[in-house]
Design a protein around this nucleic acid. Structure first.
Lengths: 342, 342
DNA sequence: TTGAAAGCGCTAACAG
DNA sequence: CTGTTAGCGCTTTCAA
């Protein structure tokens, strides 16, 4: 293995001291160098293909120029665009990211948090936070810049970037109401996640605003945001609520599961029951009953988080807002129709 | 910011020397310690929540316990399962991975390669290699363990893990032939990628084997493996080949584009034209005309690559095979039917 | 079995 | 404007 060149090799070759090379290579170095020397150094760097050793830099400066990105599962199509959004702002600045998948398992999340800390990340974007997440607060208290993405953490002052959950839920409900639906069920997400909680609260509020009855029987609470749970909850709602004409799901995957339940049980969507989702993940426009849903900003959410994290990492004085709420919009497709005249 | 504890802090607290702490914490240290001391050290480590600084370890040992994963774009659903496969073997061993997206842009790939090198990765899994990729070979020659994933590199001895492209193409063609198709077109992938090249070669060979004419007009070569190009190439094939009854696409996204072209132009699939894909990416079973395709191993491909890389990084003597070809299988769905009796 | 000392590659005072 | 020096946190000889 050809050994990598070090700053000393460059120094020797250029006939200067190592520290001079370091200065020449530091774009925002205060001390100035003679053009002649600087040029000579850059030339040798180029010639020898020298690349600084970031581990050494990090050890010395106590900044690794790396950040941790925690998400539940990169396999979930919701997250890749977010990740790319984050990197679109961080990468040009020389940051590298370490992406970890928590699978929504608290022990795993905690362990990975330790891994990130060992690696000396300069900051963390947590897209996998739980409402009750003591460890993350603990680490934040140690001074590690952290921002939560998509989810907020209870009893914590970690800044978060979320979607306008309440407005999204309301948009859907008003749309359904406007078409004549009066008997609407809700498949809620896990209540240990802020998304699940906030969307359920919003459902109840929006119902109240519209003068709709919010019978508990019309609410099915899922344990996970996935198709399987959507299927199970749809079954429950249909069985418990004769005359139900629409199901609002707390996310798209739950809706996909609900759609499956309906089609397997001789119910047409949207003919018999309308179904709506939340998030607007990819491919929704290709499936047979194209899903009406709420579009959240994915790429932009990533960018926003990254910018917040940056200003925290740079200890800049501009106050980082504790709460950032991104706008959402209703995407009307085919899974909603007026209720059957009965 | 509460400063992180260092090995010195532990040493002081436990009343021993730093080097003793280091030894106590190294699971495969040769020198033995008295149980009493070892226990005391572990207790203080536990009590103080000490975590070693990986940057320092890496600088000292010249091993970062990190690997680079290069892919074209994490947003492409083909890659997340591969990434998780890789991590499923590397993470338990303490490795962390740096995932970079090349967007199939050579300059970007080269720059990212430098980034990985700066970070001192112990090895690289390259799922974004081009057939002509001088820089990656150069870095491999410097002694950095590299294995190519999904794609092979021309004129290079970098080990690669690919799918049985030829067999997959053949399976599809035989299936189409068996149903009576004799006038089959091929939408080829980019010829600068081994997948595109190998699948096109396989198409020609399989046609020859079946006694089918391989008129160049029946081959449309795309520039990118995406829906837009699939659309364009489908149009070209349909226009140039009256009587075409089936289109074999070099991957699923091209097939999705072809499907779109057909439906927008009054052609039924599979009624008028059968369409097939390659890869079996997620969601293919949810779209209206469920796509018949070739399933490749994604998660397992990642695992295989990771294992190969490990043995290269450990300089173990077991020879790393230069070529690993993973089996594929035909997935029959709805996008293929016998040709119309004419 | 443990301690002392050197040094990985780099940066940041401090001198000159 | 440039060189000297110390040291980031850790591991690893070498001594004791």
């Amino acid at each position: 293995m050809k050994k990598r060149y070090t700053i000393k090799d460059i120094a020797r070759e250029a006939g200067v001291h190592a520290s001079t090379v370091s200065r020449a290579l530091d774009p925002n170095s205060t001390t100035s160098l003679s053009d002649e020397v600087s040029e000579r150094i850059h030339a040798t760097v180029e010639k020898m293909g020298y690349r600084p050793n970031r581990l050494a830099v990090g050890l010395r400066t106590n900044r690794s120029l790396s950040v941790g990105i925690m998400i539940p599962d990169i396999t979930n199509t919701l997250f890749p665009p977010i990740v790319r959004g984050i990197e679109s702002v961080l990468e040009p600045l020389g940051y590298t990211s370490i992406i970890v998948n928590t699978d929504n398992i608290p022990e795993r999340e905690n362990r990975l948090l330790d891994v990130l800390r060992e690696r000396g990340v300069d900051g963390i974007i947590n897209g996998a936070a739980l409402r009750d997440d003591p460890k993350i607060s603990e680490i934040a208290a140690m001074g590690v810049p952290i921002v939560a993405l998509n989810r907020k953490i209870d009893n914590s002052d970690i800044p978060y970037v979320i979607n306008d959950e309440a407005h999204g839920i309301k948009l859907v409900l008003e749309y359904l109401y406007g078409l004549g639906h009066r008997n609407i069920g809700h498949i809620a997400g896990s209540q240990s996640l802020s998304t699940g909680q906030l969307r359920l609260i919003a459902f109840k509020e929006a119902c109240a605003d519209l003068g709709l009855d919010v019978d508990e029987k019309k609410i099915a609470i899922s344990t996970r945001f996935d198709e399987e749970e959507g299927y199970r909850c749809a079954e429950q709602l249909i069985n418990d609520n004769p005359g139900l004409t629409a199901i609002q799901c707390a996310n798209d995957r739950l809706a996909l599961g609900a759609l499956k339940y309906l089609s397997e049980n001789g119910l047409e969507c949207p003919g018999d029951v309308s179904v709506t989702g939340f998030n607007d993940i990819p491919f929704l426009n290709l499936i047979p009953t194209k899903l009406t849903t709420i579009r959240i900003q994915q790429y932009e959410a990533g960018r926003t988080c990254a910018r917040l994290l940056l200003s925290m990492m740079n200890k800049s004085d501009d106050k980082v807002p504790n709460e950032t709420i991104l706008p959402v919009e209703l995407v009307v497709r085919e899974s909603v129709a007026p209720p059957k005249a009965s």
